[in-house]
Write a protein that binds this DNA or RNA. Structure first.
Lengths: 240, 240
DNA sequence: CGTCGGTTTGACTGCGTTCAACTTAGGTGG
DNA sequence: CCACCTAAGTTGAACGCAGTCAAACCGACG
């Protein structure tokens, strides 16, 4: 059930059997959520964090004029709001983009983990820092990359993140979101996303149709996007 | 010496005398760094984190074509790279923008803190999550705000963050950086930053001259920027 | 007084937006 | 089974914000 979560954690650090057991016993019941459902709003006091078992979830912030910026996408195995453990309330919303299966971890259980499992605490701290690293990379995209580079980069990121949890190959993965959602991730308009997707298709780099991505030339795509996976911290510089 | 750091922490949570002592005893010697000095590069294994005592520091990421995006500004009282404790190496660079006084905290000392001070551990975890919240707000700026809103927003943020550590009033604060640095924060060109600063000056909102900011109308500035300080987590929703 | 980094201004360009119309795909009910 | 509806995707034309390029200005400092 939480195998994808463990795959994600173990891609970055060792998790002992004891720690795995501690994680399992900290989780509550599994919940299904419909698509397009905002389940966390800014400022609400939170008492548990949300682990995504299946589906796509996003964090987003609104501007008063109705514009929206998605700040991160979450896939199976990710905590969507582990940071709410220390923050207590969030500065952003969290919503499902597809139907999702989630499971909750009470903050009380996380407090117990911080008191009994220092290493696992650091693993989860790491996990929120990984989210921050993704935020930084998106800042770079939003601030400095062209539209075509931004789109290419997002697909590179999702391909790699999904492959860690066994949901992507080098050529294919599902990303069942609309072009409008991509636009909200990338700081673009849906119309322009559409035009750029056409360009990517016509130059033989990538196809995106009805939520399915086909990467035609991964090397060229990464090159065009200036994709450097360092920020996903998949390289272990030394064994712990 | 670390009074600004304590001011920052205590603006968000209670820090006991024991915890304050633990922080003090974890710190190494004070170091002076010149301006425009990159002291952390991506991928380098790090064994201590850097607390800024004085001056302005930034995190930045480079694109292969030489373009640069600053992802966060750090002021006195901030750790510039507390996240390196769990990440071990960083995905970005860290540099001084002014001459800086810094002090280092060995990661070994932080490990000891995580093993002996669960609450202080959560405080520092919170601190890295606050950095992530700032990243998200910058994503919103870079993705959806106009140039004039972005600039106004950055000044609103710095005014509030600096006021917490006693370095800003409602009308004045020092931000001794060039317009080119602002451009690198905001995803704009220096030329356009210059034009927008002129516009802010002429509409009587704000003046920025030789590193000194004069806010002429804070309410109007915040309104124009759509500034909502929630993301700086200065509101304590319940006493701990 | 000359140099250099930083700021300012002008003219022109272009990437991405805006607005609007049309197409396509999927789902629903007669 | 098909008419209808709606959300999503596609395309075209015109616009505008910010970029680009280049030159002039300014102040600090040798």
């Amino acid at each position: 059930m939480i195998d994808k979560h463990l795959l994600k954690l173990r891609a970055r650090d060792d998790i002992s059997a004891d720690e795995e057991a501690a994680i399992r016993s900290a989780l509550g019941e599994t919940i299904m959520l419909p698509a397009d459902h905002t389940f966390i709003s800014p400022g609400t006091l939170l008492e548990h964090s949300t682990l995504v078992l299946d589906g796509i979830v996003c964090r987003y912030k609104d501007l008063s004029n109705g514009q929206r910026q998605i700040t991160e996408l979450h896939v199976a195995g990710d905590f969507a709001d582990l940071h709410s453990f220390t923050l207590q309330y969030l500065d952003h919303s969290v919503m499902t983009l597809t139907p999702c299966r989630i499971v909750r971890m009470p903050h009380k259980a996380l407090t117990a983990i911080t008191e009994q499992y220092p290493h696992l605490t650091r693993v989860y701290w790491f996990s929120t820092n990984l989210d921050a690293a993704i935020h930084r990379e998106w800042e770079l995209s939003l601030g400095r990359r062209s539209a075509i580079q931004r789109i290419a980069h997002l697909f590179c990121e999702m391909q790699l993140r999904l492959s860690i949890v066994g949901l992507a190959s080098e050529r294919h993965f599902d990303l069942p979101v609309t072009q409008a959602v991509l636009a909200e991730c990338l700081g673009l308009t849906p119309v322009h996303v559409n035009r750029v997707l056409k360009e990517l298709r016509e130059t033989g780099l990538l196809e995106f149709r009805s939520g399915r991505v086909t990467i035609l030339d991964l090397r060229a795509l990464r090159n065009m996007a200036d994709f450097d996976p360092t920020y996903l911290y998949l390289e272990r510089k030394r064994p712990r």
